[in-house]
Design a protein around this nucleic acid. Structure first.
Lengths: 169, 169
DNA sequence: ACAGCGTAGTTGAAGGCTTGACTATTCCGC
DNA sequence: GCGGAATAGTCAAGCCTTCAACTACGCTGT
């Protein structure tokens, strides 16, 4: 009746819905907490530093990167949304705001009248060029400088394993 | 001038700000992308499933868990904010909404007139009890069922290493 | 006693995200 | 070609988060 650990062990007087639940054992719980906290702190930290030093949030940065890596610096809206793990709606709003900054413009798609192309402008490319070193330094300082080569390899292995399960694409 | 990879290699005509930037090598870049995508997809998925099946977002869930693990199911607002990796303001808003649902109530702190205690109500405890199996099943299905024991151990090790660097506490 | 400072927490406005409805266009089968 | 289903994208309402005040209380030194 006092303290419970809701990842790990069921309460003594477990509710009916809890029957058959595969609770986490202590090792799993520690791994889960470490993963959850570290990913949240790292993402917050990187996003905050990038935003404060460049005025570009990590979400916007990802959009600019995706466009810049494309031959014509242009991409269909849906394709861009998928690439950025973003909903259509969210991306549409974000592109509108990037348009206001003059970093992206919309252009109707030749081959499909329903479609729109998001096109990176020269100003947008310059903004990305200015932000990239800040982003990379953050990733290096807070992630790669902290880990051994073995840990980096394990991180990649775990990430790719999870992606095979999670990523519909 | 065409496609660039902004984590990995500098553009040929790098801007002055890019001088001396420690760009990521191809291995690091793959590790970074795998980590970034997998964490984002996993967190989205868990939050979405929990929200749809129980009406409780992961952020609210964390608050309820933190309170339930405490002897008197009560915690100082700041302490709770720290525990949930949340800003004071964000937590204050969240507790207000949990109060509207009748799951938490506020109570002035005896020992410090400035302080407030967030207290978990019986209704809040019941809501947590109902949501916990859904949460745990999600974590198991999308995380632990996908990984080998070695990978779980490595995940914990990496998480704890990063926490030592990131966590101010 | 009280001035000044630091701490605890709240509030309101501004902006971002999600959901669901909506328009416009294309594809498909007849 | 033409009618219906599917697809691409946008928009508005509501919720959440952030930021910058702001209130209230406690601590310290004189």
């Amino acid at each position: 009746m006092t303290s419970q650990v809701w990842d790990a062990s069921p309460p003594a007087d477990a509710s009916p819905a809890a029957e058959g639940t595969r609770w986490l054992d202590p090792e799993e719980q520690k791994a889960w907490r470490a993963w959850l906290y570290s990913t949240q702190l790292l993402q917050d930290r990187l996003d905050r530093e990038l935003t404060h030093q460049t005025g570009i949030s990590h979400a916007y940065y990802e959009i600019l990167v995706a466009l810049s890596e494309t031959p014509l610096r242009a991409m269909r809206m849906s394709e861009l949304a998928d690439r950025c793990l973003s909903s259509r709606s969210r991306l549409s709003h974000a592109v509108s705001r990037l348009e206001e900054r003059g970093w992206v413009r919309r252009q109707v798609c030749e081959s499909d009248g329903r479609g729109q192309l998001a096109v990176l402008t020269d100003e947008g490319f310059a903004a990305l060029e200015a932000a990239a070193p800040v982003h990379v330094e953050g990733v290096r300082t807070h992630l790669f400088d902290q880990l051994s080569p073995q840990q980096v390899a394990a991180m990649r292995d775990i990430g790719e394993t999870l992606l095979r399960h999670l990523d519909p694409g």
